[in-house]
């Protein structure tokens, strides 16, 4: 077998193993804690009958291992159980919201990735001059402010003071794509700002690393312009680390989305999770946690696989 196939399949197997272990951890995180789940859901004043009912409903009378496997096999067949608070099917509600969240994250990625790479190249081209310094300064500022505050800053200045966009991002199926895009403009802008800084810094670092090679010096000596050296000679060799950074940041988007959705009252996964954490609806929280972990682990796995595939030494073994 081709060695690259072996490496890739090993990485996929590792990813699946990790996902399985993560599901154990998420399940254990809500079970093996001091105190009783039913008690903490209903509070101290609950009657014994109500507690017994809830325990039976949650299946708390069975041993944890049985419960875990029931839950896992259910989840694998797309059955995530029903929400405690309103008795609705979780998989159903989750599917719709996951679609909304991916819509948001997709547009954020479409804008952030090319912009980050371009600005990273720009920072390298004008290294240690004012464009580079400006970019680093903005980067430092944007990683020092939590996502929700960037969100409110934008709402305050763009939506309220300038009145360009709406301050809440409600979308539904009957809206046209244009309306939807206008509705999510602000949350997308926040997400872009959040991941842009990190991606740009890493792009800059990756290209600077390559810029120290001998062949770059040759290219400079034969008289190529600054941008040409970067585009034609440095960039292709920096693709692997850049793709890696892009993937890790997309994984980070998945987390950033939780907070941003709450800020803009966007009907996505993150809001769903936060709502049900405060209602102590454990089955919904577990399901959301599992989906978030799966996306996160999946993107990290893709990052590793791309790194393997983009390494010419592995693609063309001697």
């Amino acid at each position: 077998m081709h060695p690259i196939l072996i490496l890739v399949s090993q990485r996929i197997a590792l990813g699946l193993l990790l996902l399985f272990a993560a599901s154990v951890l998420i399940f254990a995180g809500t079970m093996i804690l001091p105190g009783d789940v039913a008690q903490s859901i209903l509070g101290q004043s609950a009657t014994p009958e109500a507690l017994a009912n809830l325990r039976a409903e949650l299946g708390l009378n069975e041993p944890p291992v049985t419960r875990y496997f029931n839950w896992l096999f259910g989840a694998m067949q797309g059955d995530l159980g029903v929400a405690l608070t309103n008795g609705q099917d979780i998989a159903d509600a989750l599917g719709r919201r996951l679609g909304n969240t991916l819509f948001l994250a997709f547009w954020a990625a479409v804008i952030a990735v090319p912009l980050a790479i371009f600005l990273g190249l720009l920072a390298v081209r004008y290294r240690n001059r004012w464009p580079d310094k400006l970019i680093s300064g903005v980067t430092l500022a944007s990683i020092s402010i939590p996502e929700f505050l960037i969100g409110y800053l934008l709402v305050y200045f763009v939506a309220v003071k300038l009145g360009w966009f709406s301050s809440v991002a409600m979308i539904n199926d009957s809206m046209s794509l244009g309306d939807k895009l206008s509705a999510i403009a602000l949350p997308v802008a926040v997400l872009v700002l959040v991941v842009l800084a990190h991606m740009m810094r890493m792009t800059r670092a990756a290209i600077l690393n390559v810029m120290q090679s001998a062949y770059i010096e040759t290219a400079e000596l034969k008289g190529l312009s600054g941008f040409n050296v970067i585009f034609r000679h440095a960039f292709p060799n920096a693709i692997s680390p850049i793709v890696n950074v892009v993937m890790l940041n997309l994984a980070y988007l998945v987390v950033g989305v939780v907070v941003v959705e709450v800020v803009f009252v966007y009907p996505g996964m993150g809001q769903f999770l936060v709502d049900h954490v405060s209602k102590r609806d454990v089955p919904v929280v577990q399901a959301c946690g599992l989906v978030f972990a799966a996306v996160y682990i999946g993107l990290n796995m893709v990052a590793d696989i791309v790194a393997i595939l983009s390494n010419p030494r592995l693609r063309h073994p001697k």
Partner: peptide, 16 residues
């Protein structure tokens, strides 16, 4: 491998 915010939310859903 699990984002810390997500894991913290999962744990806080059952803890006071």
């Amino acid at each position: 491998a699990i984002p810390s915010l997500i894991f913290a939310l999962v744990v806080l859903s059952v803890m006071p």
